[in-house]
Design a binder for these strands. Structure first.
Lengths: 155, 155
DNA sequence: GACAAATGTAACCGTGACGCTTACAGATCG
DNA sequence: CGATCTGTAAGCGTCACGGTTACATTTGTC
């Protein structure tokens, strides 16, 4: 897949939103949790919004929240939304058309790539943001050493 | 997966070798088919050799050939050999440990990544170089417009 | 209405990954 | 010996991407 951490960031963001459901969370707070710049967050949020996974509110008291129930957001959907459809990369230049391999390899590879991609997508789709949140809550209970990022009575 | 075309090149190379089994093919010829620089080929071949998929012969009349039967080289093995184990990329900085999500997300993502990776590997392993060669031969028969790269009576 | 608090973007930078190329050392066959 | 190949090191150019700054726009609150 894409070698960027946009997918990781997106899951992270959605997990935070899933934990604070119905609240509007600002990109500043999200940036604090992910440990990056708010603009980076907003860029990803923008993408997620276009995919219909989150809803944003502008202006004072605005922020981001989930547009769907956590259990209805599969990681496959996130992966697809983040535009990481190309795990693979084909030939940079067109291969030699006068060689039978060069002439046909691209089609063969396309087929291989898309089937592998489908398998990957399938594996990711077996998990939802709700699962991620549940795992995090569970581990938090097990080792309750960390507070929430918002300084307002964490538990 | 890795966004490089090393995997595509590797499959291409192995397909050529599969088509000319038992012959020693030079990196120049391979570069001609892939349409790149011989050094790029040699680098990939070197990796494939370390994985035991090809054998090289130095010196005059040297070259590369398959070390295994084409049907015993799965695309999963090629993928793994090319060191593209990281389709995903995690957080660049460590997330905020004082946020429960930040504290646990990395482990959750690791698990997600590795299972997705396994699914991908599995899908790739269902195909071999022999399959690729067979597909190419078939399509070449269907539309026999291209000659081999070697100018020696293609069919 | 003024102001503060947010999102939404555009623009730019620095960095890292990667393919390409040149160059050269070493091995091997004739 | 000389031609032919592999094996590498080194450097270059490019591209994608995260990070940052800056600013326009929207919106709730007083």
């Amino acid at each position: 897949m894409a070698a960027n951490c946009r997918f990781a960031f997106a899951v992270h963001i959605l997990a935070v939103l899933g934990l604070k459901e119905k609240e509007d969370v600002t990109s500043d707070v999200l940036a604090g949790s992910v440990n990056t710049n708010p603009v980076v967050i907003r860029r990803i949020v923008s993408t997620l919004q276009q995919a219909g996974l989150v809803a944003t509110a502008k202006g004072a008291r605005g922020g981001v929240k989930l547009a769907l129930a956590p259990e209805n957001i599969s990681l496959g959907a996130v992966y697809r939304a983040m535009g990481s459809p190309q795990s693979f990369s084909g030939h940079r230049h067109e291969p030699n058309q006068r060689c039978p391999v060069g002439k046909h390899i691209v089609l063969v590879l396309d087929e291989v790539f898309s089937s592998a991609q489908a398998a990957l997508d399938d594996a990711l789709s077996r998990r939802s943001i709700a699962d991620v949140v549940a795992t995090i809550s569970l581990e938090s209970k097990a080792a309750p050493r960390a507070k929430k990022v918002s300084p307002r009575r964490a538990d």
